[in-house]
Write a protein that binds this DNA or RNA. Structure first.
Lengths: 342, 342
DNA sequence: CTGTTAGCGCATTCAT
DNA sequence: ATGAATGCGCTAACAG
């Protein structure tokens, strides 16, 4: 289209050729200097470095990766940037500091149509090799056997194939429901998450287990799909809470869903926690900003990210690693849960 | 090193050549089909598409960007992934949904040594052209005149050169200090931010202006450098709060600094807000999670990101745009501020 | 120690 | 309508 009509001067970007010309050497020589490779006379090395400095040259990630296999960057593949993944990102970022690797986070789902397979697509686009290794967040499908090391965070179905890090979803769900039971609730609904994610299935299993252990039969009409999304959860919650036999408490599969439930309750004039108790899962930062502040099962999100990085770095180093790390969850009681009214 | 010994089969990644071979056509033909270009017989087109599907082929972002000028991805350049930039990312992400662009966030500062010029370096590495346009968060130096559109969020020094979006830092700082003054504080310290950022200078200016308007002379010993960082702020705050003539309130230039101050106060056994009032700036989600919840000047972070995207998209479309957008701040009173003790 | 020769995977003329 | 040739910026062999 309207590409700049740069002939060969230096309007936009400085290439290795520009440096070579300015320094009066050949391109490979510049390459060697830039990559700290030996076989270059100290004098020329200095001269080239000076020119590199002056021109502000940086090797193009693109060109380099096309040719060489190592780029020194780790890719983080996420469906989109929402609280869950950005918290993970923070943990990954601080764990990466000082390792010499840079981070490249890629959101492949911004196309709107939330087509599955974004993880395969993104991995395929970046691998090749723009990145040396990848951390894939909530892949909902099996990852293709890629040529680079890959670690999955909270993947589709149990530990399998790729290295995985996740938290004890089932145990966390039990804690959540037990908290509700201890408060005296018996009609407890569950807004479950994306069916393609193992974590969602495990949370539902934990919900059922806790209820079963308390001798309460599961009312299947109290199980609704929230897809881990605020809007979707709000919608189903509105219907649920409008029923005459509405539950006194809701266990949402993640915080976004719980926030959706909170909105639905507010719309219907229900007070939380007086008329309805709500509990979430994740403990993203915004869980503390809701009205009332959300009681939730905390996942150590930043540690989760840090663990993923640790595993990936080990794989990158060629060291043997365990293929599955599972972290614990803890109950974080705030103000959205209380004894039922009656 | 240990590159896979793939000869030409399909171990890792599927290339356009693999598709061409499998479909019995030449590479250019596949390229045309993939890029929806005409000049291909309907029959071959279908056949190629079928093979693409079957093999799971995706064009390599790397190879494509080396050759063609458009990649359909927007780059977000951040120094690192911390709450401020991740909130921005959220806003950018949701504003990008449905535009057909994908997002690539790049953290160039993970090298540990927080060398300045990361923005120039990152831009140079990605430009060329992995990305069609870039949003640079808190660049602390002048950006090189790049060949792609660039929007800066909260840049080094006032609106200049590149398109910019920021918030009313000076006004926000005045609101913060006025809130403290209204509560009855007169000895108010200020932990200021990175000197190379315009926002930090403006917040300090607002602090001085508010104090001046109240007829209070600025005690220069109450002005400390926190660099917008939690650790750094905690350190200077510890010294500050240990002084016999310690202030009764602290206005921190951003929430991270304020959190640092909170830690320092806790270490010294000072109660907040009884013994010390603390106010921050930004209103990142974690400001609500502190003990006590932090009073802060809220910046519309997600809107900030959304505005940046809107400007960038307009530039990408070749439309004229204003080169500076400034959003307003609002005071968000929580529990870390109160009347002074005496 | 340095420059020359080849490609990496892909998109683009230009022939056929 | 399709294929052969060329080059993007860079690095890895080799040659000189």
């Amino acid at each position: 289209m309207e590409t700049a009509p740069d002939v060969d001067s230096s309007p936009g970007r400085v290439t290795i050729g520009d440096v070579a010309r300015a320094a009066g050497v050949s391109i490979p020589t510049v390459s060697k200097v830039v990559n700290h490779r030996d076989g270059v006379a100290p004098a020329t090395m200095l001269r080239v470095q000076e020119v590199v400095e002056r021109l502000g040259y940086e090797t193009s990630l693109v060109a380099r990766s096309l040719r060489s296999s190592r780029t020194g960057v780790i890719g983080i593949l996420v469906p989109e940037f929402e609280p869950f993944s950005t918290e993970l990102l923070r943990g990954i970022s601080s764990a990466t500091t000082g390792t010499g690797y840079e981070l490249l986070a890629y959101a492949g789902l911004v196309t709107g149509t939330s087509q599955p397979g974004w993880e395969r697509r993104s991995l395929s686009r970046l691998s090749g090799t723009l990145i040396d290794g990848a951390i894939v967040v909530t892949p909902s499908a099996a990852l293709p056997s890629s040529s680079i090391p890959v670690v999955a965070i909270d993947p589709h179905t149990g530990p399998e194939g790729h290295a995985t890090v996740d938290t004890d979803s089932e145990g966390g769900a039990r804690i959540a429901v037990e908290h509700l039971l201890a408060l005296g609730h018996t009609r407890i609904a569950h807004i479950h998450g994306r069916a393609d994610l193992a974590s969602a299935q495990l949370r539902e299993a934990g919900y059922r287990a806790a209820l079963g252990a308390a001798g309460i039969a599961v009312d299947e009409t109290l199980l609704l799909a929230g897809d881990y999304q605020e809007d979707q959860a709000a919608e189903v919650a509105r219907a649920l809470l409008s029923r005459p036999d509405r539950p006194t408490a809701v266990f949402a599969a993640n915080d976004s869903s719980a926030i959706g439930v909170l909105h639905a309750a507010a719309d219907l004039g229900l007070r939380v926690p007086e008329d309805l108790s709500v509990i979430g899962f994740d403990d993203v930062p915004q869980a503390a900003m809701t009205t009332p502040p959300l009681t939730t099962v905390a996942q150590p999100l930043t540690e989760l990210g840090a663990s993923a990085v640790a595993m990936l770095l080990a794989m990158l180093r060629g060291e043997p690693t365990k293929d599955h790390v599972r972290l614990d969850t803890t109950l974080h009681v705030r103000r959205s849960t209380a004894r039922p009214a009656s």
